[in-house]
Every structure is written in structure tokens, then in C-alpha cells.
Nucleic acid binder design. Sequence first.
RNA 1: GGGCGGUUAGCUCAGUUGGUAGAGCGCUUCAUUUACACUGAAGAUGUCAGGGGUUCGAGCCCUCUACCGCCCACCA
Length: 732
Amino acid sequence: MALENNINEKLLKPYDPKETESRIYKLWEESGLFNPDICIEKGFTEKNAESFCISFPPANVTGILHMGHALGTTIEDIMIRYNRMRGKRTLWVPGTDHAAIATQSVVEKELLKKENKSRYDLGREEFLKRVEKFADESHNTIIGQLKKMGSSMDWSREAFTFDEKRNLAVRTAFKQMYEDGLIYRGLRIVNWDPKGQTVVSDDEVDHKPNKAKFYTFKYSKDFPISISTTRPETKVGDTAVAVHPDDPRYKEFVGKTYTIDNFCGVKLEIKIIADYEVDKGFGTGALGVTPAHSVIDWEMAQKNNLPIIQVIDEKARMMIDNENLKGKKTTEAREIIVEWLKKEGLLEKEEEIEQNISVADRTGGTIEPLPKLQWFIDVNKKIKNRGDKSLKELMLEPIRDKEIKLIPNYFDKTYFHWIENLRDWCISRQIWYGHRIPVWYKGEEIYCNTEAPKEDGWIQDEDTLDTWFSSGLWTFSTLGWPEKTEDLKTYHPTNVLETMYDILFFWVARMILMSEYILGEKPFNTVYLHGMVKDKQGRKMSKSLGNGINPIEVIEKYGADAVRMSLIVSKSPGIDMRIAEEEIKGYKHFANKIWNITRFVLDNTKEIKYDKNFENYSEKDLDLQKERHDLIVDITKDMDDYKFYIASEKIYHYTWHQFADIILEDSKKIFENGTEEEKLSRRQFLLHTLNKILVCLHPFMPFITEEIWGLLPEKNKNLLIVEPWPQISRKL
RNA sequence: GGGCGGUUAGCUCAGUUGGUAGAGCGCUUCAUUUACACUGAAGAUGUCAGGGGUUCGAGCCCUCUACCGCCCACCA
């Protein structure tokens, strides 16, 4: 009897993921089973089943997905598929993020490169059209990529951080915070990015090491105190010199004011003040106070009632009324002033030092601290209907009280540290792509609401919101808030938030803030933080190094199942991982192994009918059954503990090195020399074990397992995605 | 400056409540078409970074040190 007639011809050839995966994904989509409502409708999920929900971290519409996205998506899909198989009412909400500044920067860069134009050349309306077109294209690419990874997301609930519903959520949240006095407008020294022409928050500033010249000089020959600086050009804006109150060298001068008639052509009034912030041991122990261009100096100016003179404008050019300096770039002005100091014999010392310079993380522009009127969220104000707690406390408490569990838990400490140092969050941006601030002005009057005022003459604030404001609402804005929807009731708080550790502050903290403040509940129970995907040598994958692995390319080559396994097996949470193509290739071999296991099992069991409840196992097979049962108990526990890296390795090891290498080899002997009872027992065992392997492996390798599931001879079988996970006794 | 993490086989990493050191890849030898060569069998490889302590017993707990990595702050 020829083999070919009895088992599917597909199995005679090596497993072909490329042919299989798109077909299987389509099958799933057509079944509708990614949608929990349909699972209930079709009877796969109990209506009152416990819910399990993950909000997919909305992917930035800035281009294509990278390996990090592939990792996160895989981990989440594993959790979703596992919980769906456990019978839970399981929802994975997909979405994308408009990513305001990130997306705008990408489009601006392209515009400059291709057309040599700035956004101002196009104007707000035309520029926004370009951004939207780009965002739309990126969105489509991203959705396609997520499907290729096998993500079992409920596409009917897809959301975008900048669609109509989310925009309403943003306006509603803003209004509520404004009315509670948590959002206020204030004049502050902010991080101004001259390149992006916008303010950025403290979290969006990176520090880069930089060699700088450190100059020590006096404002004039008669001035009693020398000061030091790396930025002489700001010194034309000085209004004081601060010294330590206990510094004997300068005590006698404190309180006096000196007039310098000519400091590089500028007249200065310098008051000598005492402040404990000053470090006696640094430089000359005296600090030239520039209130308009330094945060600490600004604070000193407030305390001492000093005049504030802005000398640098938004384009990082000198705005002081002086013919030598006006309109000059800060770097040019620096040279002019240093030359002048040299000429006048005022420069005492010039040394090279290592310092850090602040740059905007998206544009790379050098941050210029400037005083500006911006919108802030007050993190310290007590909130009446939240038990007089501040936003800071609302963010801190769920983590401190273990109501939200971080995996790995050592991130708790990092989180606390960040909260302790948290200052008011600047939420207004001068970029164009984003949620417009729902505030209108008419003369001195200010109006804040979700809709524009009806009367004429009101002008809306030009600014847009920090992108993290809308992402902060994500766990509940995706479930329909501000409407009181069924979804919101059923799925919030969500169960798990899975993301990379680098946005713990940007995003995770902001979600806790928003959910605790607006809904009075946590946004999720567990935060699973994954590490960064690096190349074989441990370097960050980047375009400039050209060492990135494109997930889609490797999926084409080795299959999504193999890519998923390579990202999961023995890769612990929170820890950066290295990935090499050979490793992915290894799991393609594994897929083929499973394929051939199936071929062997089906070929050797075609005489019998699979009996799920078969009981007459031989003694040997009872031992094997026990071993298999113990393994499933183990794996189930690992899955419940979020230890996918261990569970996946165990099932891999069992499949290849126990089932294939030992049990299948042993079966050949039984089929040759065994009794009829032994043969029947083993045949039933093989079929039963193959079934269990497919089930347990499904969350990790969904495509091949579903494909084989469909090739098994049993009739009336449901899709594997809704096959119940094995029931195990928890007694042991 | 403050904080966090790491150091285990040649490489990449696991190692549950303390109880005889593990996996994958690689390497050596053998098997040569057997469900699978995208294969199988056998094998070699460790001062668990170092010192000290607790314990009957430490890779794991405590303590000190060294080195690597990351985060936050930032001295003008």
C-alpha cells in the first residue's frame, strides 16, 4: 500500500511556511474568532467567562516595524492565544499611534531632502495633508506586517490615537484636568528645540558627551568677582552673580549692585546674591546668573526678584539690541565675545572640559533653554475626588502596593526613582501634527471645552498636545471611553501591558496617571517588560550600522513560526537579547521536524481510529503518559507565571528530543516486534501526544500547528485557536 | 554624583523555596537514506568574576572588591 494514497501529499515534501502562513491567517480571519463576541456566539467561550485583555502598544506610523515590534507582538500573541485556549473571554485590541513629533520629524526630513522645503514653506494645511498621507501608508504597511507575524488581534476594534473617537477622549480628558486645576498655563524655562521649532518635555531630552571650552573672566576690570562659563554668549543676559552664602571670599559683596557700562557693547546691571545652590568648589565659586536661559538661574531670579532678559530667540540667534551681536548664531556670538574678552584683557583662563550637551531625541537639535508660556500638568496638586492625592501619588501607589506587578520586578525601583524626581509635565507642542489643545482665546478670556464656543471671535490655541497625552488614555480610549461601553466594563482594567522597558516612564507611567485619575482604577494588572533586540555582536540594530534584521525578510525566508520561536526561547523578560539569523534557521528546522513527526505518526496509525478516551495503555505507555502529563503541568505553570522563555524551551525539547528521538524510535521496534496490544497502545499514544504537542505549541508556533491540526484525520474538528488547553490536575 | 542590572561551557543564555552544574549553537567521532540530512547516535568542555561570612550544605542568602552594561541627574 503506497504511502502517498493515505496521507496528505503535502506531508511528503518539506514544510513550506510561505505557502501555508497566509492561507492559515486568512482562515483565522474568516472564522472571526479573533473577536471574543464571535467566540461566545459560536459557543467556544462562556458568556460569563473571565476576561483577558491586552491593549496592543500602538505602533508609531513612522514607517515599518522592526525586530523589537516582532518581539512584543509575539509575546502578546502568546498570552492571547494561551488565554483564549484556556476559555477566557479574550480580547487583543490593535492600533497605531500618530506619534506626533516622531511622525512630523520623519516627514519634515523627507520634505527637506526631496524638495528642499520646510513645513513653513507648505503651510499648516498642506503640510498636514502630506503627514496624513504618509501616516496612512505607514499604517497599511504596519497592519500587513502584524498579520504576517500571526497576531490574533480583533481587527474589528482597531483604533488610532488620532482618530475621531480618540480625539474626543483627548478633549474630554483635557477638559476634566483643566477644570480640576491640574492643567495650567505657565511661563517657565522650557526645553526649546530650535531644529524642530517646538518645546519638548524633560523625558524627550537626551544627553550627549561633548568637549567644550570653559572660560573664566570678569565682566569688567572693576568688577570684583571672576566667573566661569561654557556659554559666554548668554552672559549678555546676566542680571546677577550668585555665590555661596558661607563663602568668605565673596561675603562682603553680597547685596551690592554693579553697573557694567560696556560688556562687549552691552550694558549690564549685576547684583551679587547668595544662594545655597552654588558650589563653592566649582570654577571660581561664583556663578553668573542668566535667568532667561537656565532653569536654576530662573529659580534664583524668582527668589531674588531679578530682572529677566532674554537674549536668544527661537532660532537660536542673538536677539539683543547690539549691532555686533544681533541676529548672530549663538556659536558666532560666543566667538565674538571671547575675542572681545581677550582684547580687553578680561579673559583669565580657557580650559577644555568634558560636559554633556542636551539634544532633542527626535530631531537631534541642541536644546536651548528659553522662557515660554506653555501648558503643564501639575503633578503635585491634591485632587479632591481622588482622596486628596496628587497625580504623583496616584502614579506611585499602585506599584508600591503591588496592585500593578512589574515583570521583572526590579523595575519598581527605577520607577520610584523617576517619580521622586518628577516635575510638572509640559504637554504643549508647537508642532502641527497632533491633537489641538481644546482651548480658545478672545482677548483676555480663556475658554476650555470639548467643542469650540458658539460665538464668533474665539481663536483656538495653535499648539498641539504631547503625543503621550493621547497614548496615556490608550487602555480605556480603545474600549470606547468617554462613552460608558460594555467593552469598558468587561475589559478594563486590562490584564497585561507588554512593552519594552525604555518607555516605562514615557508611557506606562502616563497610563497609570490617566487611568487612576480619570477612572479611579488601574489600567492593567501586570506590566511585562521585554528587552531590546540586538545584533549578534550585541550592538543596537540601526539603519546607520545596517545591522538590522527586517522581520518581514526573515519571515519570508524561514517562516513566522521560526522567527517567533527565535525571539522567545530562553529570552528572559527585561534583558536585552542578541539575535542571529542562524538561530532563526534552527527553528525552521524544528518546524520541519514537527512536520515529519506528523508524517511518521499518521503513516503508522492509519489502521486505527483515534480514541480520545483510550484506556488500555501498556505499562510503558502509561509511564510515558505520566511524563507527558508532568510536562504539561510544568508548562502550564510557566505560562501562568509569564515564563514563556522556559515553557517554549520545554515543549521544544520534549517534541524533538523526547518524542521524536526516543519515543518514535522506540515505536519502530514495537511496530516490528510488539504484541497487538502494545501496538494499539502505542498508536493511540502517538496520536494523543501529537494532539497535545500541537495544542501546547500553538501559542508559540500558531501557523504550523494549525496547519497540521487541519491535516489530522479526525472529522468535525474546530480550529486549533479555540481548542481548549489541556485540563490538568493542580494537586501535584 | 545617584540608582539598577550583569559576570555560569568556545559563543548565546537558563538555573524555581539553598540539596550531585544545564540547554541551544559550535566542536570531535561514528552512522549513509531509515518519518525527517532542514537527520540520528556517542563524546569532550566549568576556579559559577574575586575575597570574606551564614549554613550540615551556597551558582542561589549576607558583605566587600573588580570589571561590563543601562537609566536618571548634571557644575554654571
